[in-house]
Design a protein around this nucleic acid. Sequence first.
RNA 1: GGGCCCGUAGCUCAGUUCGGUAGAGCAUCUGGCUUUUAACCAGGUGGUCGUGGGUUCGAUUCCCACUGGGCCCGCCA
Length: 495
Amino acid sequence: MAIDNAKIESIEALRRAGIEPYPYSYHVTNHAKEIRDNFSEFEGKEVSIAGRAMQLRQMGGITFIDVQDRTGKIQGLIRNNDLDQKSLLVLTNSSIGDNLGIRGIVMKSKRGEISVSARELTMLSKTLRTLPNKWQGLTDTEARYRFRHVDLMMNREVLKTFEVRSKFMRHVRDALDSRGAIEVETPILQDLYGGASAKPFTTTYHTLDDKQMFLRISDELYLKRLIIGGAERVYEVSKDFRNEDADTTHNPEFTQVEYYEAYSDYETFMKMMEEMLSAFATNTFGSTKVEYQGETIDFAPPFARMYWVDELKKMSGIDVSSISDEDVKRINDAEGLGLKHPDRYHVADSLFDKYLKGKTLQPTFVLDFPTYMCPLTKTKRGNPLLAERFELYVGRMEVANSYSELTDPLYQRKMFEEQERARKKGDEEAPPFDEDFLNAIEYGMPPTAGIGISIDRPTMVFTNQTSIKEVILFPPMKSTPPNESLPPKESALDS
RNA sequence: GGGCCCGUAGCUCAGUUCGGUAGAGCAUCUGGCUUUUAACCAGGUGGUCGUGGGUUCGAUUCCCACUGGGCCCGCCA
């Protein structure tokens, strides 16, 4: 991707002839796909197309250029005899990678390729860089992420992936809007963080006496204030930030939609997720069935319900709803969980992973967690050992997490006190005591269901990707001095 | 944090077995060719072999460290 001095010479040649290689605009009348799909209507008519030259086949007085626009490719058929002086000069100074505009007549070449037979050729942007080769393209993962613009132009399925992501986000918004919810924005820069257990990113606000601030790890505590204020149904499409390692299903910066609905419980949201995901699959792919890594995932409702504490008891003989701190070490050893600092929470979590996670390829509500795993959740009606919480799994990945939210302010205060003690003992992930939030909830919060819907992971399923980095346009990369960005020769820049 | 694999031309890759001044295809440049589509034919340009150190008469090759990336594991509501 080095700068090519021959291309700079082309720029100079064009300018000498009074042709600007970086013009302001171009009137595009049609796109590649519509012309190809409706050839009989377009045949013989004049169109103007624009896009990037991806391939160029020159044979004396005739040149074929494959022009790629956002809908696909179409061939430009360019005969020197059909062109005026200016267009000819553009042609001789064109190369693969340039943005070109072609005005011409739609026709078929002798070999039957739908083409635009050029009457005028316009340089829309002269490239200085060389595109990857046309056979293998750009495949190096690191280069693809660091030079996503090149990845996008060479690997068009990447653009498709992000179109699906966009559609999914749009669909989630529409589904929540149709429930009468309002979309809100709450602070990303926060004095205090909370709503999850995670290490935060910190930053400094210089004009406020260099105050330390945090990037949010969740939206929960702000959205609940809006519920308390009487908004009833609110959601936020939120970038959250957690200062943790990345892997194929975790990114330190990720997107979820948090939604809170007053007077509802988690049962409401199970139905909502079934409708939301099955409708999306049907609208987007024409079926509730989606191929994922050689397996078929079916979003047709109802989704499976896994009462996992019962299920786990059947399979392992362990009832995690009632294990004591004394049991923990013994189970850790007997089950070979390998936890360094076993506690009830992590033992239960590991047992789920060991026995049950593998069974969640199909959309599955994993529900009713031990209360000790859910400090912000109401207990299950009729069983105080369990809490009303579900996680939705798809493709063996957690894609949503929902509670019947805790609304008892005195209990909430107790939980903050407990987390504060854990913090002082050195638990970096325990959220800090938040008196402002307690003040809010002390005004009385109506019964409320809350849910966090992942955007990244469902997009992985819908686009058949195994790495979260494939559904994030610019995944974080370690910094490295780019060694290929050499400046052009000075002589070329002077003129 | 641990293990395995990888980094050679703009891109995709050979070469390293057994150390001896670096190769192909595409791209690019020059010439030829007015219906090609991986166009073709002829010729040319292009490389601190990821970085630093060590061994050696000599290192892209062997050794060490570092760096960047991928996968697996650990961690992570």
